[in-house]
């Protein structure tokens, strides 16, 4: 429902009827699905081949993971609210919701940073064993994607400072939203696989 046309932007004439930027973002996300599935697939195969995975040393704090899950889901909601505000033409509200999204994404990274620091202080490193290698690779790449999403959101937020820039490039908010939701979906799978099983 929030295509470029319904979000208050002029409809773009393309052969597919889909704005090129949006189609490009979806193709990029499809490649990202392959990237993360390769990593998650390797983790599942390694885990299935290990008799006592991950062992007593492989304990993660479920509640920290749950809080981070809640934070990412809330940030998905705030970026949806930003897009809805954009559809109404309420630029001030768009900026507010985008800032909230950036803030929640930053909270996620800070909590992840504390989690990493706690592991490092107990001398748990990626080289400790296969479980921790998988954990740091999967969560590390996800955290980099969160960082990328924050940068993308800030880039879109910068357009909000000038009405002319927003009118010309504000539709990129939808692309930033697609990317941000993808990052959320990856965490939806990483959380149970790493923290619950």
């Amino acid at each position: 429902m929030s295509t470029a046309a319904t979000a208050g932007y002029p409809a773009v004439e393309t052969a597919t009827g889909i704005p090129s930027g949006k189609l490009g973002m979806w193709v990029f996300l499809a490649s990202e699905v392959m990237f993360f599935t390769g990593l998650i697939g390797a983790y599942v195969v390694l885990r299935m081949g290990h008799p006592a995975w991950p062992g007593s040393e492989g304990h993660l704090n479920v509640w920290i993971g749950t809080v981070n899950t809640l934070i990412l889901i809330c940030s998905s909601t705030t970026i949806v609210l930003a897009l809805a505000a954009s559809g109404r033409g309420a630029t001030g509200a768009v900026r507010g919701w985008l800032l909230a999204t950036v803030g929640l994404g930053s909270c996620f990274l800070v909590i992840k940073g504390f989690e990493y620091a706690a592991k490092f202080s107990h001398h748990i490193l990626p080289s400790t064993n296969v479980f921790w290698s998988c954990y740091f690779v999967l969560t590390g790449f996800h955290a980099l994607h969160v960082l990328g999403g924050i940068a993308f959101n800030l880039w879109v937020l910068a357009y909000g400072r000038s009405p002319a820039a927003w009118a010309a490039r504000g539709h990129r908010l939808e692309y930033a939203g697609l990317y941000w939701h993808f990052v959320d979906i990856v965490w939806i799978f990483l959380f149970p696989m790493l923290y619950l099983f």
């Binding site: 429902m1 295509t3 949806v80 939203g177 939701h181 979906i185």
Partner: peptide, 8 residues
């Protein structure tokens, strides 16, 4: 649900 509704 995220893909269907949030990602439209």
């Amino acid at each position: 649900l995220v893909a269907l509704f949030y990602m439209h």
